[in-house]
Simulated assay, not measured.
Amino acid sequence: MKRRKNRFYTVLIGIFILTIGGLASLSSGEPASISSNNTRNKRYGIRIEKFQVFDSIRNRLIPYALYSPKMKGDSIRLVIFSHGYGSNYSKNYLNYSYLTKRLAEEGFWTLSIQHELEGDSLIPTFGIIQIVRMPFWIRGEANILFVLNHFKESNPNLKVRSVDLIGHSNGGDMSVLTAKDHPELIRKVITLDNLRMPIPRISKPHFSSLRSTDKTADSTVIPPEEVCLTCGIKIIQLKRTTHNQMNDEGSRKQKKQINNYIQKILEDRL
């Protein structure tokens, strides 16, 4: 009889300890267990480095920031980001940190390039835009190619598995031009409301575009729906995001929506 009582109290104490442990887990907001195979929700720590490289052929300095995940590995996925026009504001390439940091957290090495320098001519607002702005897009294309080559030469032990381009507005236009001229280098292009450079009617590289609520692109920019379907081009209309809310000035909800779309596109989940 005494043994039964002792066994009963032992079981009771064990149940009590398990119950307290479960309540503590719930009160801390942490799950009791996390599957080690759940990599989709995993966030890598990131490293941010700033560089200034000099293109001696064009006699031009090119600042850029590298956002990289703090993880080991010699095979990487690379994204090159190009900012929207900022009237030569010197830190425009840092004004999309919600996007560049998130990409690094998801495992993408990300280069964000400063395309405008103090003393550069301001972008034309009159005339035939596709003609008067072409030199600015060509300069942006040259910046992208130079920084890409510089990165590869500076990191000879890294194997670049893929190169994707993302750009906002004017940066989207130069990203489209770069992919159009060098399709062999680029896997995907994602534009955030580019307005002038027509998206090529091709399936490789793969093109996607997130559109704002307050700007209308030139009539030749967005391919017809049937062409998009044939070529796999994704046109995504955002419902509550304006053109100027696509940088760090946007709300948390707007940034989250943009990041989610970009991540799905890059991972072929859209």
Rank of each mutant, 00 (worst) to 15 (best):
K101I: 01
Y98C: 14
R133M: 10
L122Q: 11
Q114W: 01
W137P: 00
I76Q: 05
P69E: 01
T110I: 04
Y96R: 04
I128T: 14
G73Y: 13
L78G: 14
G86F: 04
E118I: 11
Q114D: 03
S121L: 15
Y89Q: 01
D74L: 06
I131L: 09
F126Q: 11
V147F: 01
P124D: 10
S121K: 15
S75Q: 13
I144G: 05
E118K: 11
N149S: 13
W137D: 00
I144C: 09
I113R: 09
A142G: 00
R102S: 05
V79K: 03
R139W: 07
P124I: 11
G86Y: 06
A142S: 11
Y89V: 00
L111W: 09
S87R: 10
L103G: 06
P135K: 08
F136D: 10
G73A: 13
K70T: 13
I129T: 14
E105M: 13
Y89D: 04
D120T: 08
V147P: 04
Y89M: 00
S87T: 04
L117C: 04
F136M: 09
A104N: 09
S90Y: 11
S82N: 15
L145D: 08
L148W: 07
I131F: 04
S82I: 02
G84F: 01
L145R: 14
E141R: 15
F126N: 09
L78A: 14
E141G: 02
L78H: 14
M134C: 03
E141M: 15
G127T: 12
K70W: 06
Y96T: 12
K91P: 00
I113M: 08
L103R: 05
F81L: 02
Y67D: 07
E118C: 00
I129A: 14
K72G: 09
S75R: 13
L94E: 15
D120N: 12
